[in-house]
Simulated scan of single mutants.
Amino acid sequence: MRYRITFFAGLAIGYVLGTAAGRERYEQLKKSASRVAQNPAVRNAAESAAQQGRQYAGKAFVAVGDHLPQRLHRVMGNGSGKASADDDWGTSNT
């Protein structure tokens, strides 16, 4: 019960502070976030991180491949980290 009261008190305080800032401040924050997201350096860093993640996932699959369920072997194919065209997870590459 104590946690519920704390949660609702925090919610109320956040609402009051949020409405005090107003729509204008929200639009400023939204514009700043959009500008950062469109920055080429940020986009390159995000793509590089995604590419490294795919590489590490492929290596991890190969390293523990014998211990994974058969369904994952079918979906992952040769251990490259890419789904096959006929996977049943709804993520085909075609």
Rank of each mutant, 00 (worst) to 15 (best):
S34C: 13
S34V: 05
A37G: 03
G18H: 00
S32Q: 13
G79H: 00
G10L: 00
Q38G: 09
G58M: 02
N39T: 01
R4G: 15
S34H: 11
L17Y: 07
I13P: 03
A9P: 12
K31M: 12
H73Y: 02
V42S: 02
G14F: 01
R71G: 05
E27A: 12
L17W: 02
F61N: 10
G65N: 11
Q38L: 10
K31E: 13
Q38W: 00
F8P: 05
Q55M: 10
R35E: 11
Q52D: 10
A50M: 12
P69G: 02
R74W: 11
Y56R: 10
V64K: 04
S32L: 12
L29V: 11
P69S: 14
Q52T: 07
Q55W: 07
M76S: 13
R2F: 07
K59G: 11
V42I: 04
Q38H: 11
G77P: 00
A12G: 03
I13M: 09
H67W: 13
S34T: 10
S32M: 11
Q38V: 04
H73P: 02
F7Y: 05
R4S: 14
L72K: 00
G18C: 02
Y3W: 14
I13A: 14
A37I: 01
Q55I: 14
G58T: 06
A50D: 12
G14W: 00
Q38K: 08
R25E: 12
S48A: 15
R71M: 05
R25K: 14
S32D: 12
A57E: 03
A20P: 01
A37M: 04
V36Y: 05
A50F: 08
N44M: 03
F7C: 01
Y56C: 07
F61W: 11
Y15S: 12
R2A: 15
H73F: 05
A46S: 13
L72N: 02
R25G: 10
K31C: 07
V16N: 05
Y3H: 07
A20R: 07
Y26P: 04
V64H: 08
R23A: 10
A37C: 04
A57H: 05
I13F: 06
L11H: 04
G14M: 08
G18P: 00
F61Y: 12
F7W: 11
V36G: 07
L72H: 02
I13H: 02
L68H: 04
Y26S: 03
A49Q: 10
G53C: 08
H67D: 15
V62D: 14
F7M: 03
T19N: 04
A9Y: 08
Q28E: 15
V75E: 08
R35A: 10
R2T: 13
S48F: 12
A57P: 00
M76C: 15
A45H: 08
V62F: 06
G79K: 00
A37S: 11
G77V: 03
R35Q: 13
Y56P: 01
V64T: 13
P40T: 01
F61A: 12
